[in-house]
């Protein structure tokens, strides 16, 4: 579904990604792990089209994305939940969800899809008309995920969804990722909580200093203390 090859990206003069290659197959949960600054977020941003300067190749469902702007990538079925969540100030929960549909081909089914998402996220259903930024961090994260899911993307990229969220909500969230996978959504996950992420992932790539240094099945990596120690311990 997604083939990234020889991807390079820069922040100004700093060469943030160096020849990243990775692949995600339909229906998989693939995880990117590594220390802070290893290039995980930059990889997701480059795939979504948010890096000013990127070279290489990003092929999604057979189409080369690298020269396409972010909104075209969305239309092709790519969704991205950024680390900072980006819940829009001044908008209610419902309006944030509507925002996830304004540019989607499902726009006409707005009411129906919002009802549908409210069943999956009961916490949001109770707060539909509340201003979204007044909710807790965990609820805002749920909203950010719901806003990305509502347009039914083929591949959803999540950046550090568990960060700063209380454990009970994290469990709920990871349960949700499992059921998303069961329903056929492909997931590319960046996560600091390595054990948790590998618990639901099929495969993982280990990044260090802007490059892929290791790849393995999630099971194999869970058992590989040396790799985890070398590239993931803080």
């Amino acid at each position: 579904m997604l083939q990234v090859s020889q991807l390079n990206a820069w922040y100004g003069a700093s060469h943030a990604l160096q020849d990243i290659s990775l692949e995600v197959t339909r229906g998989e949960i693939v995880c990117l792990i590594g220390r802070n600054g290893a290039g995980k977020t930059t990889t997701l941003k480059s795939i979504m089209g948010l890096m000013g300067r990127a070279r290489g190749s990003v092929i999604f469902k057979g189409e080369e994305l690298l020269r396409q702007p972010a909104h075209v990538r969305f239309a092709l079925g790519l969704a991205y939940v950024p680390e900072e969540r980006r819940i829009v100030q001044g908008l209610s929960v419902r309006e944030n969800l509507r925002l996830g549909l304004v540019a989607s081909k499902h726009k006409k089914r707005e009411a129906e899809l919002i009802d549908e998402i409210a069943v999956i996220f009961p916490r949001l259903a109770e707060r539909m008309d509340q201003e979204a930024v007044t909710m807790s961090g965990g609820e805002q994260q749920m909203l950010a995920i719901a806003r990305a899911m509502i347009a039914k993307p083929d591949l959803i990229m999540l950046d550090e969804p568990s960060e700063g969220i209380m454990p009970v909500l994290v469990d709920e969230m990871f349960e949700l990722f499992r059921s998303m996978k069961a329903q056929g959504t492909t997931v590319l996950l960046v996560e600091q909580n390595v054990e948790l992420a590998l618990g639901i992932a099929d495969r993982a790539y280990v990044l260090d200093q802007g490059a892929v240094v290791h790849q393995a099945s999630a099971q194999a990596l869970l058992a590989d203390d040396e790799i985890k120690e070398r590239y993931c311990s803080v």
Binding site: M48, L50, P69, A70, H71, F74, A75, A79, Y80, P82, R86, V88, Q89, G90, L91, E95, R98, L99, G100, V102, A103, S104, K107, R147, A148, A151
Partner: peptide
């Protein structure tokens, strides 16, 4: 209107609006 929603959101955060598929 949806267009109004896009404008209100875009004034606060153009990047997320782009990520959600809008040609800003």
């Amino acid at each position: 209107t949806s267009y109004g929603l896009i404008i209100r959101a875009g004034a606060r955060d153009p990047q997320i609006v782009r990520v959600l598929g809008v040609d800003v």
